[in-house]
């Protein structure tokens, strides 16, 4: 994030760090005890799913705090329109964790913007551990920045012939100041407060680098995907839990006993 500030602990309790091979690569957000929302391009097909780790309750990338939890990925569901109608269109991924997140003051879910959300005059924030300068400086502490939303017509005007901005996208940026998201913020949330409740309205997706403020950051528009998100959260079975060794032994003993009882009357 360019032009942001260090975030205090517990300020963005839904923020997630997606690690690949032990390094932060993308952001994400907690939307449920088993589910994280992120960008599809963070989970490319050629990546080894077992090399991903998900961290929640994290502020400083160097240290796990008292509330930090670590998770393995069970399943990644990429939106079916990803890269279909636009090189970065449908840039949404639902990540199911292998075990349940324990919520606390520092670890909480964000709400998903519904299709009828009205973003007029909304005050919105982006957060992430992405680059903090065009020279490539990386932060240790989670960064936050308040970013104004930009209408689709203005965003299309600003990008001109470079790229078409699709209806499933949302633009935000400050075309005067250097306040924007950057590489490494991908997958992270753009959230706005409505009536004391924080709604996620965007997922950091793409842009023309982060050096040119004239080109706003482009996010996946969460309200466009909210029905798809809710459908998969409701209809995907929770991950199967491995049986502890003792339970397996007990299970075998019970089945042997049942077999004996069934055979005994025949003797």
């Amino acid at each position: 994030i360019l032009g942001g500030a260090d975030a205090l602990e517990r300020r963005w309790p839904w923020q997630v760090s997606v690690h690949y091979g032990g390094f932060h690569v993308c952001g994400g957000s907690i939307i449920d005890e088993y589910w994280v929302l992120s960008a599809a391009h963070c989970f490319n097909r050629d990546k080894n799913m077992e090399a991903f780790d998900i961290y929640v309750g994290l502020v400083d990338l160097r240290f796990a705090g008292n509330h930090t939890q670590w998770f393995e990925v069970n399943k990644v569901i990429v939106h079916p329109t990803y890269e279909v109608y636009h090189p970065v269109g449908g840039d949404v991924a639902l990540v199911q964790l292998k075990s349940r997140i324990v919520f606390s003051d520092s670890v909480l879910p964000v709400c998903i913007a519904s299709p009828d959300v009205n973003l007029h005059n909304a005050t919105c924030w982006s957060t992430g551990w992405g680059l903090v300068s065009p020279q490539g400086h990386v932060p240790n502490k989670l960064q936050e920045v308040q970013i104004p939303l930009i209408s689709l017509p203005l965003c299309r005007l600003l990008y001109g012939h470079l790229s078409y901005i699709m209806p499933d996208m949302l633009c935000a940026g400050d075309i005067r100041d250097m306040r924007t998201v950057c590489e490494g913020d991908s997958g992270g949330p753009l959230v706005c407060e409505f009536n004391h409740t924080w709604l996620q309205v965007g997922i950091v997706s793409w842009g023309r680098g982060c050096v040119y403020p004239m080109y706003p950051a482009v996010y996946a528009r969460v309200s466009y995907f909210s029905k798809w998100i809710r459908y998969h959260m409701e209809h995907t079975p929770p991950p199967s839990q491995p049986l502890p060794a003792l339970a397996r032994v007990l299970g075998v003993s019970v089945s042997v006993l049942a077999a004996l009882l069934a055979v005994l009357p025949m003797l």
Binding site: L8, R10, R11, W12, P13, I31, D32, E33, W35, F103, D105, L108, P109, V110, C111, I112, S114, E193, H196, T197, W198, L199, M233, E234, H235, T236, P237, P238
Partner: peptide, 27 residues
């Protein structure tokens, strides 16, 4: 549909935790 979980009134899918609320006040 055994795995289907109820949706709370807050819109969160976690039965006991409301979404979008944090426990510190903004500036």
């Amino acid at each position: 549909m055994a795995h289907r979980r109820p949706r709370s009134q807050s819109g969160a899918w976690s039965p006991d935790v409301a979404c979008g609320h944090r426990y510190i006040q903004g500036k």
